[in-house]
Simulated scan of single mutants.
Amino acid sequence: MTRTRSGAAAAAVTILVGSVLATPAAGAVAAPEPTTVAKKLVTPLSMVVAGDGTAYVSQNFAGLLTAVVPGKKPQVVFAAEKGTEVGALSEAGGTVRFATTKGKATKLWSMRPGSRPSKVADLWKHERTKNPDGDQAYGFVGLDPACAAQVPPDVPATYTGILESHPYGSTVHRGTTYVADAAGNTIVGVKDNGKVSTVAVLPPVPVVVTAEAAAANALPACTVGKTYNFEPVPTDVEVGKGGWLYVTLLPGGPEDGSTGAQGRLVKVKAKSGKVREVASGFAGATGVAVADNGDVYVAQLFAGQVSRVRSGSSTAKPYASTMMPAAVEWADGDLYVSANVLSEKPKGVVLRY
């Protein structure tokens, strides 16, 4: 029941060993046999496929940006200084966008092939000065003080948004780079001139505490039946039909499944910040891709599965089973998936379906 402000990567390693792979449900269309595009990667949590077919993959914890040109071996095109995470990849017009995180410092960069990256924006400055979710309440709803006093110290009974930034996913649309900030619980928009604005503060994810969840998290019996508002933790963003931004929410909370599969797929109207839920019931939603026909694919890190939500539907059905998927991208009629992303050794792969 603890907070998860820094996204999927920070807390998932230990519980993913032995994840059960889901099998396609009746009536679901199974994915074709995948082709391996790249292998021996370290934490490939973000990915984008450029117009020329080059797949750019982040090796987040190694601080590397890798380019995979069709028919060639993967090549590191950017290496950050030690202790810096690289992620939140997107691309437009041949220019790659990516984010770096080192301590509290988070920045957005742009880079053209063969060139050095240039800083586009200071994302931490926006979080530090605006704290967009600072007024948003998380934790238990309506819990009386006597019960709240029995809640373990590592479970914040009630709190509001703190100052923290961790850009996890991004996409570019009409000159604006939209960034899913997993720790800030926001979608921010960044113009080419570096101006940063808050597009949307994602709503908390309400979960009713069951007796089983209370026991698994050492919560007192008086919390059973109460609602706990988890931080949403947006992990990826893509543009779909009508200019809607499709966003996956992890969300925050325990990563052992004790509170159920609470991941969400929502869509956000960039102009107004309006948020609508599209589908729910995901176990660790870490990546989203939108196909040309409007179908939406969601990577479920904890379920070992990529699911598909048909255009116009609110139901997710299994599409492909693979160990620890994180990023999904749709390009030229194919679905690209990064998998085995949190293995202890460099065994991450990129698959094409």
Rank of each mutant, 00 (worst) to 15 (best):
T4S: 09
A10E: 12
A12V: 15
I15Y: 05
L16F: 13
V20R: 02
V20S: 04
L21E: 10
P24Y: 07
G27I: 13
A30Q: 07
A31T: 14
A31Y: 13
T43I: 03
S46T: 14
V49M: 05
G53H: 06
Y56E: 10
F61K: 13
Q75F: 00
V76L: 01
A80E: 02
G87V: 02
K102C: 03
K102P: 06
K102V: 14
R112T: 15
G114Y: 12
V120T: 14
D122A: 06
W124C: 00
E127C: 04
G134F: 09
D154V: 13
V155T: 07
T158I: 11
Y159H: 05
T160G: 03
G161M: 07
L163E: 10
E164F: 04
Y168F: 11
V172N: 00
R174E: 15
T176K: 03
A183I: 06
T186F: 10
V209G: 01
E212D: 15
A215W: 01
L219K: 02
K226G: 02
E231H: 05
T235P: 02
D236A: 15
E238T: 11
L245K: 05
L249Y: 03
L249E: 06
P254T: 15
G260I: 10
R264E: 09
V268E: 01
K271L: 09
K271R: 05
G273S: 10
K274E: 12
K274C: 04
G284W: 08
A291C: 07
G294S: 08
D295M: 00
V296R: 14
L301M: 13
S307P: 04
G312C: 10
L335Y: 06
Y336E: 03
S343W: 13
E344W: 10
E344M: 12
E344Y: 12
G348W: 07
V350C: 08
R352Y: 09
